[in-house]
Amino acid sequence: MDHGAHAAVMESHWGGGVSPFAATWQKTMMWIFIVTDGLLFSGLLCGYGFLRMANTIPWPKQSAVFSIPFIALMTFILITSSATMGTAVGAARLGDRRTAVRFLWLTILGGAAFLGCQAYEWTHVIHDGARLYGPLSGSELAHLGVPRQFPAAFFILTGFHGSHVLSGLVILTITALRTGLGKTPAQGVEMAGLYWHFVDLVWVFIFTLFYLV
């Protein structure tokens, strides 16, 4: 192969320039991470759908097992924390560090409240006899006749989501402290915000598909 032909094959004709998404590499990588992490939850939700649709034992009515108003409260807390996070990102972009830090701490408060509610819900459901492998024989859930896949799906879905909330809280705490010290640029707050909104986004799917449908 002569040099001209070799160059024609090897040379990139990429027309996207150095930033095809018009975003920094940090933001691009964050989005790629969000897509891959979203696929994890997509797989879990599809697995849950399989367990539910293939089950010969009817899936229980969610309101018989959970307090739906309490789950609605958790949803309200998470949506509100997303709004405070958005405000923190907006303030950081405008260079208003004080407002950014204040709203970051409000977001952390919301996230901690959500996790507290989830811990309460888990305690309640475990007390009713839910175990990862199925309901305890003789327990309240066993009397309701829930299939053994039901508590498994509950613990896996909400557990994975809760672990994301927990890691989000760690990221937000570090971001709030560093932003307060002027060490994190606006983009750092934005990256933390993307992750937090993603956690909220996943909850929208879990809330609808597991608790309401």
Partner: peptide
Amino acid sequence: ATMIGGNFMHLRFEKRNLAVMV
């Protein structure tokens, strides 16, 4: 989901190919 992605995550304001990829 669209509202969270578009308004909270700013996908509405990003370049379209990023929004489409996601």
